Simulated scan of single mutants.
Amino acid sequence: MVNLSVGICDDDPKCHRKIMEICEKHFTDNGIACEIFSYYSGEEVINEHDNHIDLLFLDVEMEGIDGLRVMHKAEDMQNIHSIVFVSAHAEAVWDSFGYKTRGFLQKPVDEKKICKCLDQAYERKKNDSFIDFPNYNGSIFYKKSDIVYVKSDSNYAILYLGNNEKIITCTLKECEKKLGGMPFLRVHRSYIVNLNHIKNITGETVCFKDGSAIRIGRSYREKVRKGYNDYLLGELKK
């Protein structure tokens, strides 16, 4: 069974309590195993290192470190997967774009919209499937979300999994077929990247959250820009 972890960061006790009650009821009604973590300031979130959070409901306006600063800090936090902003000011949506942002809800919060965000987070986690790749000993399984990028190495390929590298005995073209499209995108004749691990694209370079970078192949540049923009728009519409 998939266990979903939800964080709520809002310094307004009334709104905080309402979001929590909606989450608890939705999980109970749908038989979903869950954990809910409460934070009442941005400082509490950026100092959270022990708990994994699949979805963080984040207030924009808070004293001290506000939600937008938390969003930028969260870019380097591996334990926070996605963010849905909550604000009384609709215009704040224009400042809330980030690669972990999955939505924007206006206060007073709507129960149906909260539940939709929860369902989408649950589906994302449930569909994070494993792929089997051939290696020297037969085959081995890796989680799609753990793959940062794949590099061609003659008739073989190298999977980059954060701090680990694994050689697999198939070509980059065969890898591309196995990965099955978005969020994986070919950016060079020698590289396929996972867009979920990208921090941004600047000029002709793909920059990753871990600080590494890959140059985009000349013939791939237009396709990469369009693919990345479509990916970001698709994530915001979910």
Rank of each mutant, 00 (worst) to 15 (best):
Val2Asn: 11
Asn3His: 14
Asn3Asp: 08
Ser5Pro: 00
Gly7Asp: 03
Asp10Arg: 03
Asp10Trp: 06
Asp11Val: 07
Asp11Arg: 05
Pro13Ser: 01
Cys15Ala: 13
His16Phe: 04
Ile19Arg: 07
Met20Glu: 14
Cys23Thr: 14
Thr28Gln: 13
Asp29Met: 14
Asp29Cys: 06
Ala33Ile: 10
Phe37Pro: 00
Phe37Ala: 11
Ser38Pro: 02
Gly42Ala: 06
Glu44Leu: 06
Glu44Trp: 07
Glu44Phe: 12
Val45Gly: 07
Val45Leu: 01
Asn47Phe: 09
His49Cys: 03
His49Leu: 00
Asn51Gln: 10
His52Phe: 13
Leu56Lys: 08
Val60Ala: 04
Val60Pro: 04
Glu61Lys: 10
Met62Phe: 04
Met62Asp: 02
Met62Ser: 05
Glu63Lys: 14
Gly64Lys: 03
Gly64Met: 01
Asp66Asn: 15
Asp66Val: 00
Ala74Lys: 03
Glu75Pro: 00
Asp76Phe: 10
Asn79Glu: 11
Asn79Ser: 07
Ile80Trp: 02
His81Lys: 12
Ile83Cys: 01
Phe85Cys: 04
Phe85Leu: 05
Ser87Cys: 05
His89Tyr: 15
Ala90Asn: 09
Ala90His: 10
Val93Phe: 02
Lys100Ile: 04
Lys100Met: 06
Gly103Ile: 08
Leu105Asn: 01
Lys107Ser: 11
Val109Arg: 01
Asp110Gly: 08
Asp110Pro: 03
Lys113Gln: 15
Cys115Trp: 04
Lys116Met: 11
Lys116Tyr: 09
Cys117Phe: 03
Gln120Val: 14
Ala121Glu: 04
Tyr122Asp: 00
Lys125Ala: 07
Asn127Leu: 12
Asn127Phe: 06
Phe130Tyr: 15
Ile131Gly: 04
Phe133Met: 12
Pro134Leu: 11
Pro134Met: 09
Asn135Asp: 15
Asn135Ile: 08
Tyr136Glu: 09
Asn137Ala: 15
Ser139His: 13
Phe141Ala: 09
Lys144Phe: 06
Ser145Glu: 12
Asp146His: 13
Ile147Met: 12
Ile147Ala: 14
Tyr149Cys: 09
Val150Ala: 10
Asp153Ala: 15
Ser154Asn: 12
Ser154Ile: 10
Asn155Leu: 14
Tyr156Trp: 08
Ile158Arg: 14
Tyr160Asp: 10
Leu161Thr: 04
Gly162Lys: 08
Thr171Met: 04
Leu172Val: 03
Leu172Asp: 08
Lys173Ile: 04
Glu174Ile: 06
Glu176Arg: 11
Gly180Ala: 09
Pro183Thr: 02
Phe184Gly: 06
Leu185Ile: 13
Arg189Met: 05
Ser190Pro: 11
Tyr191His: 12
Tyr191Gly: 01
Ile192Asp: 10
Ile192Thr: 09
Val193Cys: 12
Asn194His: 09
Ile198Phe: 06
Ile198Asn: 13
Ile198Leu: 15
Thr202Gln: 14
Glu204His: 14
Glu204Asn: 15
Glu204Gly: 11
Thr205Leu: 01
Val206His: 08
Val206Pro: 09
Phe208Asp: 05
Phe208Gln: 08
Phe208Gly: 10
Gly211Met: 03
Ser212Cys: 05
Ala213Glu: 14
Arg215Ser: 10
Arg215Gly: 11
Gly217Val: 01
Ser219Gly: 01
Ser219Trp: 09
Tyr220Cys: 03
Arg221His: 00
Arg221Trp: 00
Lys226Leu: 14
Tyr228Asp: 01
Tyr228Phe: 15
Asn229Thr: 15
Gly234Glu: 13
Gly234Ala: 08
Leu236Thr: 05
Leu236Tyr: 11
Leu236Gln: 12
Lys237Asn: 10
Lys238Trp: 02
